[in-house]
């Protein structure tokens, strides 16, 4: 995945079955963001794989004051890349479940 300066990782082990997964997001390189972000630390949240889109969550993070509006796309992309990887892994490792 492209280096967006924003890191998103699983916050719990993925058993391949749950529809919602816990993710953790933090800024690795603040210079890649357009707006100034607060020194947030790591933001942990749950993501509904079937129901939600990374854009929705990114917008909520902006609304909650974690990031500037101008960075909503880079946040969404970072989440999207990680979610795509998780879904790819699930389909590859547990094809019977899909």
């Amino acid at each position: 995945a492209e280096d967006t300066g924003v890191r998103v990782e699983l916050a719990e082990e993925d058993d391949g079955r749950k529809s919602s997964i816990a993710l953790r997001l933090w800024v690795e390189d603040a210079k890649k963001l357009k707006g100034k972000s607060k020194d947030n630390g790591a933001i942990e949240f749950t993501f509904e794989l079937e129901k939600e889109t990374p854009d929705d969550v990114a917008q909520e993070m902006v609304d909650a004051g974690f990031f500037h509006e101008s960075d909503v796309k880079i946040i969404a992309k970072s989440i999207r890349d990680r979610v795509a990887l998780i879904q790819w892994r699930r389909e590859r490792i547990c094809p019977m479940l899909h």
Binding site: R7, W26, E28, D29, F45, E60
Partner: peptide, 27 residues
């Protein structure tokens, strides 16, 4: 721990905690 902060927004719960030093990229 005491550094953990919980932020609610649009029905979602964000849990904010410090990033462990080992996870930060070296500048």
């Amino acid at each position: 721990n005491s550094f953990t902060q919980v932020v609610h927004s649009a029905g979602r719960r964000f849990i904010v905690s410090p990033v462990p030093e080992s996870r930060l990229r070296e500048q």
